[in-house]
Amino acid sequence: MPKKIKLHKDFHGAFSYGLQFLCENYGEEEMVAYLVRLARTVYRPLVDTVKLRGLPALEEHLIYVFTVEGGKFEIGYEEDVLVLRVEKCPAIHHMKERNYPIAQKYCDHCRILNQEICKAAGYSSSVKYDQDEGSCVQRFWEER
């Protein structure tokens, strides 16, 4: 299991601000276009790994991220579906603690990013979230 490391968690607020800036100045479709770009650039190594190793690669990535960020979560398989249950999203909770405004569509970034990463690797995903609570359920499965 990865150790928790010191992070500059204010970055979550800055990222949220960037999403809000895109929506307010250029429309939601541009926020989506930016996130699609992120999936293809920043997350290209993850896409490549998932293509090679399948859902276990995604599982490792999610365990790493949510552990180092100090989130409260469970992850496992329900038949062939990888399911991540986030009880306490570390990003949402940090922003609330610091009274940072949270982008209206903040949690959508997970849904869109996951979708694009999975699509590129031959998988699908869904995210059901409660942004106010900072909780969600993310599912990942192979496209047949």
Partner: peptide
């Protein structure tokens, strides 16, 4: 979730995205 460990890359991509679509002024 874009992690803090990925933020700088996401930030960099945001600058590039804006510049390419709306110019340096954006």
């Amino acid at each position: 979730m874009v992690s803090c460990t990925e933020f700088i890359m996401a930030y960099n991509e945001l600058f590039s995205y804006l510049d390419e679509h709306h110019g340096e002024k954006s």
